[in-house]
Write a protein that binds this DNA or RNA. Structure first.
Lengths: 341, 341
DNA sequence: AGCGAGTCGGGAACCGGTTCCATGGACACG
DNA sequence: CGTGTCCATGGAACCGGTTCCCGACTCGCT
């Protein structure tokens, strides 16, 4: 174990000079700086972040609070964040607060209190008031992805617009009996992603004079969830819709699988549109509104870095380069279906 | 910011006594211990892990090196590990060494050298000799999941047996023209999971006297990868197989989607068997050999904890409660297909 | 020549804990 | 009553860096 004292001795300087040379603060002549750096390289010296952060108060580490790692969106975002943090020389500690586990309370009460990080990124989390107070009490910058919180800078896409765009695509094709799968009635419609996407669907329907046809089915935001909801929606042949506006691509894919299982053809019997730009979208020829979670990860890292460096930054960043990619899971409805409506 | 000095002052004892009372070492009378604990609770004191680890050398943190977070297997394993570590009061820092990025070298050279952890878990990683040397030079216990390394304790399932079991199921149904999708010829057949599953397939074929029929197609271990390979295998109607033994469920699902796209029925035209027990398996009625990544995550944490506590432990733990779950993606081959062989 | 500003480097304090060592009291035993 | 052991506690050193403060030296200017 070689410490900075060894480096200093080899370079023939004092600890303080060695530290200045390596961290780049204060006055050090170019020649001695070089000598110190060489000495450090020779013995393979790497500063202990523990010791450094003890005095500087900065850990070069950020905490990421995330509900899932193996849902596509969250996985992609996480990888985007990891890349961004690596580039800024930060480590990443993972706090996985999966719903339905007891770990959430323990993480908020116990693990976060250790303050092993300079800042926190939350992803798709809606903290309770108590949790929010906890976060604030850490006295570290907190930024949120996908959900606005009072007093916390955030990044998100315009979920209302995205879902409205998807629904308008179906309406433009001539569909009128369109069901939305994903949003849950119990959700706070302003706060949650699910809720905002439901709102987008409803906005589009109302704008087209189809307010009376609004119908939505709650679903887990996953392929199996979409499958189950799809089975339910398709199950009743009498008031079967001609199109589905799904809140995510995973839901959309699940719905497509359910439709095929039931012997329905996509898109001739049923059009399906999703939101995400999932890696499976192409395979299923899924029409979807793309968002790029990796970029969102990068953006949230930028925002946090602004806060850490004390740079001024926006309260809220709205990423909007989302675009509709039309593939062959959507088409005009069958004529008989149209008249039957 | 309250430190242990504040706790000590409030409790009316010295720093050293306060420390002993809170960490549980040395002699402290029950009454003063209680007084200290109360004082700590009153001011919401949480010890700085940085300061503590500076002197103890233990960080209460482990590093996890993982190639993907959003492949099902890896995501599940990661969640299993997170749960296990939380239970032991450890934090988790994530080192994501996605193939095809430059981050891998930076992580091994730069980030690991910071030694912010008491131990390392690698998942499905095959380190180069240089990387292995790096890991050893950290002087911290390293354990590996899914891949044996010289001098490193590990946990894995019997990939050869698992794949053999899957293939034997197809042979038992009467299939003879069975293609394996997944393994790559270039892989070290002993070292990699892909390779071992290929070996299991070949073993089963040879044992059944079908050695001459052995055929395998390399593929990315993902749904799109399986889809692409499936298209390729099915593409040539002349020597189309009657069954596919896929190296993972994601590959199997991709193959099923490809088959359906081509108008083939599963299982009547093509039987498909996978390995994993993926969350999509039921939806696709996939016959598969289940493994439980979450348990593997728990097991690898146990192994690391043994090493950290200095307990003796096995060099290698072979988890074998893997079982074949038969659903309806596999069936007897069509008679004409059998004779045509 | 005298002086101030700017540059360079060393000594020592400090971050917030843990642990070694010394001290002192209580108690048992010869 | 002296002495040894055990228990409880406090003081101080220490972990490995960073940073404050101060002294010395150089240089340019009056």
């Amino acid at each position: 174990m070689s410490g900075i004292a060894d480096v200093a001795r080899i370079a023939g300087v004092s600890k303080s000079t060695a530290s200045r040379a390596l961290t780049g603060g204060g006055y050090v002549s170019e020649s001695t700086r070089q000598r110190v750096i060489d000495a450090a390289r020779v013995i393979g010296y790497v500063a202990s972040p523990n010791a450094a952060s003890l005095v500087t108060g900065r850990t070069k580490n950020v905490g990421v609070i995330i509900p899932f790692v193996n849902r596509w969106y969250f996985g992609e975002v996480l990888e985007g964040i990891e890349d961004g943090l690596l580039a800024c020389d930060y480590d990443l500690t993972l706090y996985n607060v999966r719903p339905g586990t007891t770990s959430r309370a323990r993480i908020f009460e116990h693990f976060l209190a250790r303050k092993r990080f300079d800042g926190i990124i939350t992803i798709g989390i809606e903290p309770s008031p108590a949790e929010l107070a906890r976060l604030v009490s850490l006295e570290r910058p907190v930024v949120a992805l996908g959900g606005q919180l009072p007093g916390i800078a955030s990044v998100s896409i315009d979920d209302v617009a995205v879902s409205r765009l998807a629904t308008e695509h179906l309406i433009g094709l001539g569909h009128t009996r369109i069901v939305h799968i994903g949003g849950e009635r119990s959700d706070d419609l302003v706060g949650s992603v699910h809720g905002r996407r439901l709102t987008g669907y409803m906005d589009a329907m109302e704008a087209a004079g189809l307010g009376a046809q609004i119908l939505y089915v709650p679903s887990d935001m996953s392929v199996p969830g979409g499958y189950a909801a799809g089975v339910q929606v398709i199950g009743d042949p009498r008031n079967r819709p001609t199109a589905i506006s799904a809140a995510s691509d995973e839901v959309a894919v699940g719905t497509i699988i359910a439709a095929r299982r039931t012997g329905m053809e996509v898109p001739s019997d049923l059009s399906v549109v999703g939101v995400d730009g999932h890696e499976y979208a192409e395979m299923f020829s899924l029409t979807t509104v793309e968002q790029s979670p990796r970029e969102q990860g990068a953006a949230i890292v930028d925002l946090l870095m602004d806060a850490l460096e004390g740079r001024p930054s926006a309260d809220h960043v709205l990423l909007h380069p989302t675009r509709l990619v039309v593939r062959s899971s959507t088409a005009r409805p069958r004529p008989e279906a149209m008249t039957r409506s």
